[in-house]
Amino acid sequence: MSTPENKLVLSKVSLPDKKVLRKHAALRYVWKHRYMYLMLVPAVIYYIIYHYVPMYGAVIAFKDFSITKGIMGSPWAGFEHFQYLFGLDKFWRVFWNTVQISLLRLVFGFPLPLIVALLLNEVRRQLFKRSIQTIIYLPHFISWVILGGLMVNLLALDSGAVNSMLHGIGIGPIGFMSDPTYFRGTLIGSMIWKEFGWGTVIYMAALAAVNPQLYEAAMMDGANRWQRMLHITLPGIKSTIIILLILRLGSMMEAGFEQILILYNPAVYSVSDIIDTYVYRIGVTEGQFSIAAAVGLFKSVINFTLLIIANRLARMTGEQGIY
């Protein structure tokens, strides 16, 4: 019976059989865990529609997009929009504004929470420590609009508390909200005021995980407070510092869209118009979707590249990185 032809036929038949079996195994696995997979469905749909479709939609940066023709129907434009942008003074101004404001935020905003956390960590009275910690991160939970209101009040030219005090020592009045010389300082200062407390809490949470026995052992060995801070506290939160730094570097192109959109005005555009506000104005307000999308894509690509580089650097120093 088993002629060579038959064997050939048999093996031909058995091949798809195995496939079907394997398929069945996979199907059985999915069926067994069907409720688990069903639970994922709402999230998957959300991420597809509001994250992955926009990623595809970014191709309009390479098209002459018009709402009536849609993404597919609009004609290709290649790199035309990018060429146009790179030749535009305005574009480079918002680019450098973004980089400069972001660097200022990093330089002045990054060290402060760390310093405050180290200071708080030295406080022995628990009630005082907890009270200060609770007070300083309150501003993290108010909106930029409310903060804008507090600033309008505090920094008002004629009757604000800050200008009143400056007047007392013979300075001003200073247009913190309207003078291009001071506006960036106002942006950085208000950002720090709003966020340093929350940054401190994150470091305090990391510090709570440091083994107290290390401190006891160091004290027995005669280490003073400064030495304990340098050799136990700092190494204990080193990885938290590095991760926060990676995230910060990975978002160098984020200069505080929500903040600036509330606080800026045409008088200070020259020093505070950033990529995001520019995209908002030419895209949403003026309807130049393709050019605005090109600017946005340019920004996303830079952010992504910086994040990869920062993560590499962190790994090179022996840290875990974020992925």
Binding site: Y50, P54, M55, A58, I60, D276, V279, L297
Partner: peptide, 11 residues
Amino acid sequence: FSGGIIPTYLV
């Protein structure tokens, strides 16, 4: 990585 403000707005 994100598609950006404008593509999200259009969606």
